[in-house]
Design a protein around this nucleic acid. Sequence first.
DNA 1: CTGAAAGCGCTAACAC
DNA 2: GTGTTAGCGCTTTCAG
Lengths: 341, 341
Amino acid sequence: MSPTRTSDQPPVRTLSDLAKIAGVSAGTVSRALAGNSLVNDATRDRIVALARAHGFRPNQMASSLRRQKTDVIGIVIPLGHDQRQQISDAFFMTLLGHLADALTERGYDLMLRRVLPDRDEDWLDRFIGSGMIDGVIVIGQSDQLERIEEAAANFRPMVVWGDHAQGQQHCVVGTDNRLGGKLAAERLIAGGARHIYFLGDVSAVEFAARFAGATDAAEGHGVAITPLTNHLSADRLEAEVAGNLDRPLGPGDAIFAASDMLAVAALARLRTRGIDVPGTVKVIGFDDLPFAAQTSPPLTTIRQDIRAGAFAMVDRLMRRLDGADAPSIVLPPTLVERGTA
Amino acid sequence: MSPTRTSDQPPVRTLSDLAKIAGVSAGTVSRALAGNSLVNDATRDRIVALARAHGFRPNQMASSLRRQKTDVIGIVIPLGHDQRQQISDAFFMTLLGHLADALTERGYDLMLRRVLPDRDEDWLDRFIGSGMIDGVIVIGQSDQLERIEEAAANFRPMVVWGDHAQGQQHCVVGTDNRLGGKLAAERLIAGGARHIYFLGDVSAVEFAARFAGATDAAEGHGVAITPLTNHLSADRLEAEVAGNLDRPLGPGDAIFAASDMLAVAALARLRTRGIDVPGTVKVIGFDDLPFAAQTSPPLTTIRQDIRAGAFAMVDRLMRRLDGADAPSIVLPPTLVERGTA
DNA sequence: CTGAAAGCGCTAACAC
DNA sequence: GTGTTAGCGCTTTCAG
């Protein structure tokens, strides 16, 4: 009892094929299958049954073209500040998973596109103008703020995950990174830190904000802070962290990693070097990804509510698709106290 | 110098709008923009420049409809055997990331769809028949083998990640799970295990094969093996693992987790209970996800080469799109010896 | 080398 | 309630 074509009859590929078989017009079949307007119950049932029997499914491209609506949301991940960062970055992937959940719930499909803005400066407008998507979600601002602002000026149904800056026009959902950075530094300082090493790539706006927040706190307490550039590409991450932490480290030194991935790599490196965490050096991460609770010691970190963020993005996007105005939203980060700081 | 419309001239939305401005026909614009056939170099350059100046981009829906080709590959993740499993499952997400890399390289976009087969038995044919995609990649067979086989009979450009069984018709790329299970059990047995606890949901074919392989090895050595059902949904995982490991555990007992996620949760639970790993109880995982090297002790696990798998899937899909025949491929798992077994 | 014309498969007025 | 008609925006013969 398969829902597909039961035998090798003349294949039914179009609405009018079906219409012919059913002895009605294509318009009626269209209406019947849409369940939409006032079609005679009997004819509708007959048509629907026929469609099932022949495994017929209306062509979405034709439908989209005609309706000027695709029911697809584009998801784009610009890999600008770090070409080699994997799209498989754990944070983005987690966010994507929740976006998929939220959009599926609303009846939208997802069109995923990975772009290298350095090689294609038209990346965003090209996607928007393609006609393939009703709206777009940008995951991460990378170093593409200008281009995003420009696009937002001409295209409403766009929501961006990232940092909210003064005067920024595009609709952004994200964590208060500056506050998060402050919370992290304060936690380390309360634990006795006199020198904080910040692990992360400050050329990405979100990371820059985290560093700025940490700097605020450090300066307020007369604590030194040093940025150590670390990229996120899987292949270089470990070596870079090792290199950056290959310095005399003792009591009073602490590490603020801009992401949990980085923090975990730092933990591994410190263990290798025989430096006790949190006894000698304290470590704090950022994100609170699922594995953060499972490291040893379990990672103290700044939590971003990824699921709430994803749902907020979709909510705003839907409102913008309806022509309403949906403002940016900044989510509060929270300190998750575990075993490393 | 933005590539978008420079001012508020009458907007250029269609090929013929641009044709009018350029003083040529729509056909010529189409050819010029496609860079395709023999268009006068001068006219082509003029048209391309005009298109840039007006921020014109051809509508992909119309193009797809006309060409009967979308340049989009559908990626579908059936969540059958575990409704609450997140799409954010770390393994699937990693695979997805690599698929995105491979497909982008070939000029394809990805259409992502998450489905609950239990609620929609037509999930696969519906996607295939939608006309939105040129081919489809199914990530994970879940408990949907029959439906996948059925669909494969009528639709060539489909590749599935999963387990390869005798007589299976659809093109599948995956790891030799049975061998992987065997390797895992043998490693534990060589370490002195007399009783292996298998953590995982045997109703998914891939996990069942891992269990079968482990059982082969255990029986061959006169070692006991007990399956402990654990789902993969993020919310239940921890509690279930805790419950399942809440039994007397001592020397001679060992744990084979069907995924690294499960293994890490087991590690955390054993630590909580004060059971030394690998001193008292040995633990081995499956997958070798990026974080596996970073746990403490670092996780011994069975490695699946996810990147190679993703590229193999895309390779086979491309061949099938070209009408060629691309057979299934079974990738060899490898034991990664680290600190837990 | 370029223009004209015919659709791709569907939907939505507008008739009846 | 249902049929008819006119496109959605693009590509591609077929002429010239």
